[in-house]
Design a protein around this nucleic acid. Structure first.
Length: 279
DNA sequence: CTGTTCTCCTGTAAGC
DNA sequence: TGCTTACAGGAGAACA
């Protein structure tokens, strides 16, 4: 599933392939993909003749910029964009097609139909629901360690679901949360307000590193992209715990365990990530 | 206000 | 072999 690194890779791919393109018409095959107050009928009308002037990203949201509008797109679990000549037959699970003036299509596909795109007047893209309440980007510059520590002190909740909440820090999903907690040697069920300053410091560093490394890995394959956006990068990222149930921990050899935390599959090393805080 | 559970979706894998 | 059931999960709504 796309988390921040994959979304950033998709953004770069879109920039490379369709920046400056003009939309000739739009087809929507699954109305619920189009969210917000502008519904699909109006959505299709308003985008006719609009030129894509830029692509931005905030957390896991991709923001298309037009002269008068912004299109905020969230891929959720399995959303993806593809660029094809408009003569190429549509694949199964194609829900939105932007026909471009140059004869190509920008197509949105999504097997589970969880993804959403919202059209808003230019200038309102960062104040809309979802994007407005996002925490800082997980970078050294934007993500302040002291603020993070102080926020965690006020939260009586397990650390994993808290990190999945995009209000604390933007961009983490189920995979990279497990990876960051493993890197910081913190058990996913530890109460946020029980974490010591040193642990929060390690976690802060791990989040920045895990996501940063993955962004870099995604970026290395960008040149190989032709039509599909955001797929190739995944192969470059090597994971330590996610999906490694039963496999020896790379640090201590103990088999990785899988449990459920807040309905999510959660992977951790029972030896490196102790629940009892004996530090 | 805070924290938890439910809901949306469909393909894949497991179970009988 | 073929049917049924469990599972995967981001984020917003509904609920406690």
């Amino acid at each position: 599933m796309p988390e921040l690194p994959e979304v950033e890779t998709v953004r770069k791919g879109l920039e490379k392939l369709v920046l400056g393109a003009t939309i000739k018409s739009v087809d929507v095959y699954w109305d619920r993909i189009i969210a917000g107050s502008i519904e699909s009928t109006e959505f299709k009308q308003l985008l006719i003749g609009e030129k894509i002037t830029g692509f931005d990203r905030r957390g896991k949201y991709i923001v298309f910029h037009f002269k008068n509008w912004a299109l905020v797109s969230h891929l959720r679990m399995e959303g993806k964009y593809e660029v094809e000549e408009s003569t190429v037959p549509l694949k199964k699970h194609t829900h939105v097609v932007f026909h471009l003036a140059d004869g190509r299509d920008l197509r949105y596909l999504d097997v589970r139909k969880f993804g959403r795109m919202t059209l808003v007047p230019l200038g309102e893209e960062y104040s809309m629901t979802g994007i407005r309440l996002l925490g800082p980007e997980p970078t050294k510059e934007a993500f302040d360690e002291t603020t993070f520590f102080n926020t965690l002190l006020t939260k009586k909740r397990a650390i994993k679901p808290l990190l999945l909440d995009q209000k604390i820090v933007a961009g983490l999903g189920n995979i990279y949360v497990d990876e960051a907690l493993f890197a910081a040697k913190i058990h996913p069920l530890r109460m946020a307000n029980s974490l010591k300053k040193q642990e929060v410091s390690q976690l802060h560093e791990a989040i920045i590193k895990v996501l940063g490394d993955a962004v870099e890995a995604g970026g290395t394959t960008i040149r190989t992209y032709q039509n599909a956006l955001g797929e190739a990068g995944k192969f470059q990222v090597k994971l330590s715990v996610y999906g490694k149930k039963g496999i020896p921990c790379i640090r201590c050899g103990t088999p990785i365990e899988k449990i459920k935390v807040a309905q999510r599959g959660t992977h951790f090393c029972p030896h490196c990530q102790l629940l009892t805080s004996v530090q």
